[in-house]
Write a protein that binds this DNA or RNA. Sequence first.
DNA 1: TTGTAGGCGTTATCAT
DNA 2: ATGATAACGCCTACAA
Lengths: 344, 344
Amino acid sequence: MKKSAQPTINDVARLAGVSKKTVSRVINHSPLLNDDTRKRVLGVIDDLGYIPNPQARALALRRNFLIGLVHDNPTAQTVLSVQQGILETLRETEFELVIHPVNRGSPTMLDDIRRFLERQRLFGVMLMPPISENDELAALCDEIGCHYVRMGSAELDASEHMVASNDREAVRAATQYLIETGHRRIGLVLGPHGFRSARERRQGFEDAIAAAGIALPASLTADGNYTFESGLAAGDRLLDHLPRPTAIFASNDEMAAGVIHAARQRGLEVPRDLSVIGFDDNPIAAHIWPPLTTVRWPIAAMARSAALKLVGDATGQGNAAAEPAIFLSSLIRRASVAPPPKVD
Amino acid sequence: MKKSAQPTINDVARLAGVSKKTVSRVINHSPLLNDDTRKRVLGVIDDLGYIPNPQARALALRRNFLIGLVHDNPTAQTVLSVQQGILETLRETEFELVIHPVNRGSPTMLDDIRRFLERQRLFGVMLMPPISENDELAALCDEIGCHYVRMGSAELDASEHMVASNDREAVRAATQYLIETGHRRIGLVLGPHGFRSARERRQGFEDAIAAAGIALPASLTADGNYTFESGLAAGDRLLDHLPRPTAIFASNDEMAAGVIHAARQRGLEVPRDLSVIGFDDNPIAAHIWPPLTTVRWPIAAMARSAALKLVGDATGQGNAAAEPAIFLSSLIRRASVAPPPKVD
DNA sequence: TTGTAGGCGTTATCAT
DNA sequence: ATGATAACGCCTACAA
């Protein structure tokens, strides 16, 4: 009769003595179903080890059971944490994760993403910063009818379309900590132009400086782009400054590692001669020397929650609207901060 | 007539004045086709911006255009490099990448993977170490009829199913470099039990030691599991050894970073008091202090090639059999190695 | 509460 | 070389 291959909805229907549609109703948790028939069908499904074919469902529903992750290669660890967070939510569901890095800067980026979403008819996408900050992209998802959730460093969208961290306030607190420790000449390494996270962190820094009534020359602010190398260069520039800053806040951990490297290259010791704070708390932070004081960015938790916003309604795991939209970052104090040296 | 939605094969057929099947033949590069009709159809396809629906194809072909990446969370950077390598090959093709981490150790791991492969009817899977070393898993792929390529640290399978690096020889050369630099008391931090890569690297180390006619006590070998923490612990153990080793080879970079950390904690300076070599050349290697001498593992290139083995025949990008199966690792000399201290 | 007919967009079979 | 027809496995609309 049937092949030894996978059982289909027809096999289940025949053995259960019902129509395909009834089986379909069972699969889709239709409420209007006799309890007896449901139990009978479920029994057969179990016996047969039947699993609905996702491709057939996708064709009929005009929608896949795939979640896309679109990003523009921010730091490796960030991407990986987000993947892990999403997959934690997706585990035990019928959804799978398709990763799709793109090239911000490419003029065809939006077209590329559109093609990706339309072709694959994704159930939904997760947008990672910084491209998550692009409102055109969000509009595109809406137009195509693809669910989306944006991850960011500030509130960018309606609650069901966004999870955000409070970067500004977190950096303000971190900077205030430096000030309370006695620092007055504090350098700042910026994130890349155009990144919302970079802007938020800068503002947080400036909030704290202003609140303390400190005046800082513009030359104590250096550009960076979230890479180790840019942190190294920025550190060099800031440490050339006279009088030398006694502390530096770098807008992410990789750049902070670069700053420490720069300090060491010129014989300065951290934290004796220079205090450093980073942002992210990625694994490198705890593994460099000295262990880095940093702001812990709850990116994995954000990703988990974002994924739940996407699929929660469909899987019954939770209610998208009820998921929190704001995640708080907190300062992790390690060994890279000390009071400033007595004499300059 | 038709919706404003995506054009289908029917639209193309009608406008080109041919049957669906002919369009299908054009799409699939069927050789038996009149050049005129082909050109005409291609013209219409272009005009309409028609893109074949992957879900429908998947249903008809009983095979998806998805490549799976199955791994058991080795180091973050390794996973990410592999993803990038695969995606480089997949770019401009119709394939997408689905990531599927699993839990080695879980007794249901094989069942989980089977379910994943059967449900999604993947075109193929890439298997990352260490689970790529599992022959049962390869047999499972064969049984299901899912293409697969295994990545590993030694030749595990037929050439079309495998890309490998020459870890043993690479570590032998690295260790020989330590010996040539003057070291005789060299510690070894192992990778996890059961990992082929760990075994290969250990053998390479022992090859070099034996070739130099050195006798090393077993106490100069310490267990590790590829994490920073395990490297820290192993470093502590080895540095307790008297007389102290003057050099340590750690089976990956993260553990090497841990060893350096351990040395620093007891006031030893690298490389003045202790030389260290790692393996992988992941970004952390260049960013710690001192920059780490290490073996560069061409993992991204391996992944690119592995993906080509998987989809090359289908996309016409290349011939699976022609792709190389062995990738050579090479020693990257940085600042973490120096001659041993004069006095013990 | 359950079933029937038809369609989702593609490919395979077998003609012509 | 090309086309008609029937899958592929599921879902929606409409009946019953």
